[in-house]
């Protein structure tokens, strides 16, 4: 349930990113965060032990007890920030010429791409090592 809620949050974030003129990041967010991460979470949940019905009931009861402060906290913070805070005017910025995203991604931020490749390889290696079944002494 929480994994699906997270996917919904990702979809909302995608819409906000479209609104903020960032369509490529939005598509990335939708495909990777709403898709891949949900798959990872659902796989992890299904690989781990499912709880029995009485346990689930008890857990839900405890969870509601622990989480009911959250909407109150969110509401109070939103009210405080919305009504009592004086918003300063943002400083004027030097206008830049419109740079194409592709130029930035492949030329200006080339090192980032290299870093991303290294991180992905490190992640793949980590997952392989973590999920590798331990071989027994016969080598099987």
């Amino acid at each position: 349930m929480s994994a699906i809620a997270l996917a919904s949050a990702s979809i909302v974030l995608t819409l906000l990113m479209f609104r903020l003129d960032a369509p490529i990041a939005a598509v990335f967010e939708l495909s990777v965060c709403a898709g891949l991460i949900t798959v990872i979470f659902v796989s992890t949940i299904s690989l781990t032990k499912p709880v029995t019905r009485p346990e689930l009931k008890q857990q839900t009861k405890n969870r509601i007890k622990r989480y009911w402060y959250l909407p109150v906290l969110v509401f109070v913070t939103a009210a405080f920030l919305g009504f009592y805070m004086v918003y300063p005017e943002l400083p004027a910025l030097v206008s830049l010429p419109d740079i194409d995203f592709r130029d930035v991604m492949w030329k200006l931020r080339q090192t980032d791409i290299l870093g991303q490749i290294v991180i992905i390889l490190a992640g793949v290696f980590g997952v392989v090592v973590l999920l590798k079944e331990k071989m027994n002494h016969d080598g099987q």
Binding site: E29, L36, I99, D100, F101, D112, Q116, G123, L131
Partner: peptide, 24 residues
Amino acid sequence: TAISQSLAITIIVVEVVVIAVAAG
């Protein structure tokens, strides 16, 4: 927006790798 999108994509990639390893 171009620079921020590039940075956002980097953040998303790092986030996915962290979550995958943490799930493992």
